[in-house]
Write a protein that binds this DNA or RNA. Structure first.
Lengths: 101, 101
DNA sequence: CCATCATTTAGCGAGTACGCTAAATAACAG
DNA sequence: CTGTTATTTAGCGTACTCGCTAAATGATGG
């Protein structure tokens, strides 16, 4: 039997809110923001007690959601925050407060 | 072997963003908001193609996250939106934009 | 009471998430 | 080349999510 292909999240909001749901991923975003927007994978991994590959995975989830992007810098990888989708999520939530009619 | 107890989400943000991650749950919130804040379980279930118990489950996730609350009304159950935690999430996202340094 | 209506609870199955360790890759230093 | 540093990929196990159907609950009407 052929292996079923993995599910693809087509909905942007679903990807963004799913990414924001995990505390490690929120910490990555907050730290990245606080540190001026750019950090290496190693510096990010050092924030956590768990194994490095686990962090790699969180970074991939964040990148797939469009919340971060990366660039090679020699043998390191520099991750930077991208706030456009954070703004999108904030605006979605905003509608609940600015819609008197 | 004893069955492991289910995981409890102690983190408010985790509960809220997890709840917001599913499109059905976002539709419930948007519809509740649009309809003036209150709807019966039946009216909410009628929004979806999927079986009623599936909607019940989504309502429980939303309620556990503090995004909705309910009250009995005869044999029906009236669900109403509670925006406090939506505001909390919106404000959390807001910090990424109002922190110039 | 008894049936019916509105809704939830119980429990199952397939798929997904998230931790881990081991192995692979890629760039740099000697 | 060879080793070292930085990081990802591969693959595994356990727990959780989300759909389903069947059964239970609780209020109302006759």
């Amino acid at each position: 039997m052929a292996k079923t292909p993995p599910k693809v999240l087509t909905d942007t909001y679903e990807e963004v809110f799913t990414a924001l749901a995990h505390p490690a991923r929120r910490l990555i975003l907050m730290t990245l923001n606080f540190e001026g927007g750019e950090m290496t994978a190693g510096d990010i991994a050092a924030l956590f007690k768990h194994a490095w590959p686990t962090t790699t995975r969180h970074l991939q989830v964040l990148e797939a959601a469009g919340l971060i992007a990366h660039e090679r810098q020699g043998r390191a990888r520099l991750y930077r925050i991208d706030k456009k989708r954070l703004a999108l999520a904030r605006d979605w939530l905003g509608w609940f407060f600015k819609s008197p009619r």
